[in-house]
Design a protein around this nucleic acid. Structure first.
Length: 281
DNA sequence: GCCCAGGGAATCG
DNA sequence: CGATTCCATGGG
């Protein structure tokens, strides 16, 4: 079988990594669980994987595809023991890390992350996934498995009417403004990448519909700016309950990493906080 | 029907 | 300035 010479199932060992939590903790929206496998796309790349203990099993993966894309996407070239060591001085983070310490910050494409979090505003994760899924089906490239993420120019060439099928509501016009500003060069991702954090925030917020929260998520998840610290309703609960004085100062260079572990912890761990605190505030 | 969801713009005091 | 209100949509 010729195609099996390049596409195969292979395994790697990776201790202290949580595959499912990493791909389903609200930093990306294109993966789902299916028959015990995590299946989904990033950019134009397809992944089918599962985890057994410290072993990751990839189905139908070209080894080059792993080396050239997924290894970096899953941030396997970063040593997370540095973060764990730093965070472990804090009792709340000890608990969060016991639950979600294997989460990694994905090295996502900037445009894909920006779109994802524009569509995330005043919305819930299941519906965000639905909108992004339709966005890819309607405007992305048809791949062997699934659809790629749409190019900037493809979205920029749309009008609002064409985007109505997404059922994105008021967010569609925000998406359009983002695509057009990037396509015509009035927003330059290279400039955002190089800029200081405050300037990068301002650049992104020039997009109509991008405020502090969406800019922060885009910087953390789409530009790998680990000091970015998105605060949504869940993180407000975390801050209110655990950190009324704010995070420890020494976390700041990597506050985004702590944020993502805390976010997943409070959202999905039943006994992270008392029941009344899950709803209140 | 109500409330809420990884918010932000427009408007009002 | 800070604080409301509106924005579309779907699930609980």
């Amino acid at each position: 079988m010729k195609q099996n010479e390049t596409k195969s199932t292979f395994q790697i060992t990776k201790r202290g990594f949580q595959l499912e939590a990493t791909l389903d903790c609200g930093q990306c929206f294109r993966f789902q669980k299916k028959d015990g496998w995590i299946v989904g796309m990033a950019g134009n790349h397809f992944l089918k994987a599962r985890q057994e203990g410290g072993t990751l099993i990839f189905d139908g993966m070209d080894p080059c595809e792993w080396e050239n894309f997924w290894r970096k996407y899953l941030d396997f070239n970063t040593d997370y023991s540095i973060f764990h060591q730093l965070f472990s001085m804090d009792p709340t983070m000890q608990k969060a890390m016991a639950y979600a310490g294997g989460i990694r910050i994905l090295r996502q494409d900037s445009w894909e992350a920006l779109c994802s979090f524009i569509l995330s505003q005043n919305n819930n994760i299941p519906r965000i996934k639905g909108i992004i899924s339709r966005l890819c089906e309607q405007f992305g490239e048809r791949m062997e498995y699934g659809y790629g993420f749409p190019k900037v120019e493809r979205i920029a060439s749309c009008d609002l009417e064409e985007l109505s099928g997404l059922r994105a509501g008021f967010r569609a016009k925000y998406l359009l403004d983002a695509a057009r500003k990037i396509a015509d060069g009035s927003l330059d991702f290279a400039k955002v990448q190089k800029a200081e954090l405050d300037e990068a925030r301002e650049l992104l917020q020039q997009i109509h519909g991008v405020g502090p929260k969406v800019a922060e998520c885009t910087l953390l998840f789409g530009f790998y700016r680990l000091e970015a610290f998105p605060v949504d309703v869940w993180m407000k609960r975390v801050l209110c309950y655990f950190y009324p004085e704010g995070l420890p100062d020494c976390f700041h260079p990597y506050a985004g990493v702590a944020q993502q572990m805390l976010f997943h912890y409070i959202r999905t761990c039943p006994d992270a906080v008392p029941e009344q605190y899950r709803k209140a505030q």
